[in-house]
Simulated scan of single mutants.
Amino acid sequence: MSDTPKDAGAELARLLSIMARLRAPDGCPWDREQDFATIAPYTIEEAYEVADAIARGPDFPQLMDELGDLLFQVVYHAQMASEAGQFGFPEVARAIADKMIRRHPHVFGEAAARDVAAQNSAWEVQKAAERAARAETGTLAGVPTTLPALTRGLKLARRAARVGFDWPDPGAVLDKLEEEAAELRAELPAMDRARQADEVGDLFFVLVNLARKLDLDPETCLRDANAKFERRFNAVEKVLASEGKAPADAGLEAMEAAWQRVKAQERGQA
């Protein structure tokens, strides 16, 4: 396995030269016509594919492949910025290296070693100073609007909690969840879609905070729930097929009975 700085530098230089060649006047027509906005969705997609490879085991060969795809996205953006006369890959690497040194004075400086809680606090102080330097004011400043909604809600709630705007415990969040559910129920007869959407959004946000208070990641919770539903519904279809039925023709009662059978089987195997 090659892991020396020299090897890494040579392979990175090769990747940078490939990217430059693709964007050259006689390079790839598709790559040449892209810009930051058109490449951004691919960058997000590749990050999710890295997470998926990790969730699968991790699957190390796939993880290596997906990390390469994600690195290529960074190289792509840096190449376009270089063409615009703004910055290149060396500046990107230098900026993150400087940031990591700045945010870890207990490792790279003379500050005393900290426990995890103290380090997290110091990290947030440093990030707040960096936001202030960028003229981003306010507790919630700088949380990207392009994040997945659950992730952004979690970040916003964490920021607010750091200045004391928080529920005292998970039980209090559950009380708030019941309150929001009651408000949504009250909106159902009116059929006002805007009001209903507002109340559903409140429910989601409270659920994000419940996960936070339980030290759970809401994206992971929902991802696991999706996987569980998919697994169980696929099993329901197999149960119905063994009875010569299709889901669309079986009816809700038969599907619910099959669902309960599948759940009971899973619990028996646990």
Rank of each mutant, 00 (worst) to 15 (best):
L154F: 05
R195G: 09
F205I: 00
T145H: 09
D217S: 10
A161C: 03
V262M: 03
D224R: 12
L240R: 08
V236F: 06
K245F: 06
F165H: 14
R232F: 05
D198L: 06
F204N: 00
E199R: 10
V208N: 02
A211H: 01
R159K: 15
A160M: 15
A258C: 07
A235W: 10
T151H: 07
A254Q: 12
F229C: 06
M191P: 01
A149Q: 03
R159D: 05
E243C: 14
G164V: 04
A235G: 10
G153P: 01
A186V: 13
V239A: 14
L203N: 05
D217A: 09
A182M: 15
A157E: 05
P247R: 14
D192A: 12
E178M: 13
E179I: 06
P148E: 02
A227K: 12
Q196S: 09
V239S: 11
K176N: 06
W259R: 11
V239P: 05
L174Q: 12
R152A: 03
R152L: 01
L203K: 03
A254L: 10
N234F: 08
K176Y: 02
P170W: 01
D198R: 12
P170T: 02
E253Y: 04
G171L: 09
F233C: 02
A254W: 09
R231E: 08
D198A: 13
P168H: 10
K155D: 06
D224T: 07
T146W: 11
V206R: 00
R159G: 00
M191H: 13
P218M: 11
D175G: 10
L203V: 07
A181L: 15
L154G: 01
E253R: 14
V173Y: 01
M255D: 06
D202Y: 07
L150I: 01
A254P: 06
A186L: 14
G244T: 13
A157F: 05
E237L: 11
Q260D: 09
P170Y: 01
E243Y: 11
F233W: 15
K213Q: 11
T220E: 14
L240I: 13
T146L: 05
V200S: 05
L216P: 00
L174A: 13
F229W: 09
E237S: 08
V236I: 15
W167T: 09
L156P: 04
L216H: 04
R193I: 09
L154Y: 03
L184C: 06
L216D: 03
K155P: 00
L252V: 14
T145I: 06
K213P: 00
K228D: 10
Q260N: 10
A157H: 06
A149I: 04
